[in-house]
C-alpha cells in the first residue's frame, strides 16, 4: 500500500472526506447510544432539541461556543505553524486568573478603560505562559507537546493555590472561589434581556482578525511557510525562531482571552471548574475546522451544540454525557484521516 499525491483535486475530493468523517462520528455515537440502551434517533433528536430547541437552548449553545472559539483559534494558529500547543487549558486559566485578580476592585476605572486593560493583561499572561515552552522548543529543542501538557497540571495547581490563598473570596463561605468582579469589569450583554455577552462578539472579531492576518499579512505567510516545511522556510530566509515565538504569543493570547471572556462575561468570578476542558476541546474544534479561522467559528458552534444537547439528552434519558466526548474524539481522528484523503489516494503496489 502506498499513498500517492493528487495533483488536481476537484471540489468533491476536497469536501467529501470531511463530510464523511462527521457522518462517521454520528455512526459511532449511534452505536454507543445502543450500547447504553437508548434509541439512537431519540438520542440525536434530544441532542438537537437540547441545543437548538428553544431560545434558552440556543443562547446556551452560543455561550458554550464562545470559549471554544477562543481556544479553537489558539490551537488553529499554533498548529498551522506546527507549534503543537496542547496547553490552551493553562493559557485559558491564565487569562481567567488575571481577570479575576484585577477585575474585583483592584483597579477602579470605568468600563471603557477597565475592560480593555483586563483583556490586554489577560492576553499577555496567556502569551507568557506559552512563551516558556516555545522558548524551550527553540532554544533546547524540547518537544512542546509534553511541556505544554505538563504546564496544564502545574498551572491548575497554581490556580487551586490562588483560590485557597491570595484570591480567595472572604465572603465565599470557605468555598474556593474568587471575589465577584465589580460591575465595571463585567462584559455587558449584546442585547439587553438576552443572556449573551460581548465575549461572543469579541470571539467573532478575533476569528476575522486571524483570518486577515493569515491571508493578507507577511506574518500569516511566514507562519504557513514554517508549518509546511521548516527547512525550506529557513532556506528561503524566513526567521523561523521569531515566527515560532510570534505564533506562540498569538496563540497563548487568544486562549487567555477565552478565560477573560468567560470570567468577565459569563461567570463573574473564578472557580477551579471554570473550564471543563475547553483547552483540549479546542484541539477538536481546530481540527474539525481544518485549521481555518472562520471554520473555527462553525466548528465551535457544532461542538458546543453537541455538548449542550448531550447534557439535556442525558438528563432526559440517562445516556451518559460522555457520549458527546467520544463522538468528538472520533470526529477528530476521522477528520485527520479525511484531510489526508483530500490530498492523497491509496495505490496498491
Amino acid at each position: 500500500m502506498r499513498l500517492e499525491p493528487i495533483s488536481n483535486a476537484g471540489p468533491a475530493r476536497k469536501l467529501l472526506p470531511p463530510v464523511l468523517a462527521i457522518l462517521a462520528s454520528f455512526v459511532v455515537a449511534a452505536v454507543l447510544a445502543l450500547v447504553a440502551g437508548g434509541d439512537p434517533f431519540a438520542v440525536f433528536g434530544l441532542i438537537f432539541k437540547g441545543a437548538f430547541g428553544s431560545k434558552f437552548a440556543l443562547l446556551e449553545t452560543l455561550n458554550r461556543a464562545t470559549p471554544l472559539i477562543f481556544t479553537g483559534l489558539a490551537v488553529a494558529v499554533a498548529f498551522r505553524a506546527k507549534l503543537w500547543n496542547i496547553g490552551a487549558e493553562a493559557q485559558f486559566y491564565a487569562g481567567a486568573v488575571v481577570t479575576a485578580a484585577l477585575g474585583a476592585g483592584a483597579i477602579g476605572l470605568s468600563s471603557v478603560f477597565l475592560l480593555p486593560i483586563l483583556a490586554i493583561t489577560s492576553a499577555l499572561a496567556g502569551a507568557f505562559i506559552l512563551l516558556i515552552p516555545a522558548l524551550l522548543k527553540t532554544r533546547f529543542k524540547v518537544d512542546e507537546v509534553v511541556t505544554t501538557l505538563l504546564f496544564n497540571f502545574i498551572f491548575l495547581l497554581f490556580v487551586s493555590y490562588l483560590l485557597e490563598g491570595p484570591l480567595k473570596d472572604p465572603m465565599g463561605m470557605g468555598w474556593p472561589k474568587s471575589a465577584r468582579l465589580i460591575p465595571e469589569a463585567r462584559l455587558p450583554r449584546i442585547v439587553e434581556g438576552l443572556r449573551l455577552h460581548w465575549g461572543f462578539a469579541l470571539a467573532l472579531i478575533c476569528a476575522v482578525a486571524l483570518y486577515v492576518i493569515d491571508r493578507k499579512t507577511t506574518l500569516g505567510f511566514e507562519m504557513r511557510a514554517v508549518g509546511q516545511n521548516v527547512e525550506a522556510a529557513r532556506f528561503a530566509g524566513i526567521p523561523v525562531t521569531k515566527v515560532i515565538l510570534k505564533t506562540a504569543l498569538l496563540s497563548g493570547g487568544l486562549a487567555a482571552l477565552g478565560g477573560f471572556s468567560e470570567v468577565a462575561g459569563l461567570k463573574g468570578s473564578l472557580t477551579l471548574d471554570l473550564s471543563p476542558g475547553f483547552g483540549y476541546t479546542g484541539i477538536v474544534v481546530a481540527m474539525l475546522a481544518l485549521l481555518n479561522p472562520l471554520g473555527v467559528v462553525a466548528a465551535a458552534l457544532f461542538v458546543a451544540a453537541i455538548f449542550v444537547g448531550a447534557d439535556s439528552m442525558s438528563r432526559a434519558i440517562g445516556v451518559p454525557t460522555y457520549l458527546a466526548d467520544i463522538m468528538l474524539a472520533s470526529a477528530l481522528l476521522m477528520m485527520v484521516l479525511a484531510i489526508l484523503f483530500t490530498k492523497f489516494r491509496i495505490r496498491r503496489d
Partner: peptide, 23 residues
C-alpha cells in the same frame, strides 16, 4: 501506514480512550 501527524493522532487517541472509558 497513513503517516498522519503523530501529535494529533496521539492526542486524539488519548481523548477517545479516556471518554470511552468514562462512558
Amino acid at each position: 501506514p497513513f503517516g498522519l501527524s503523530q501529535h494529533v493522532v496521539g492526542v486524539g487517541v488519548t481523548l477517545f480512550a479516556t471518554s470511552t472509558t468514562f462512558f
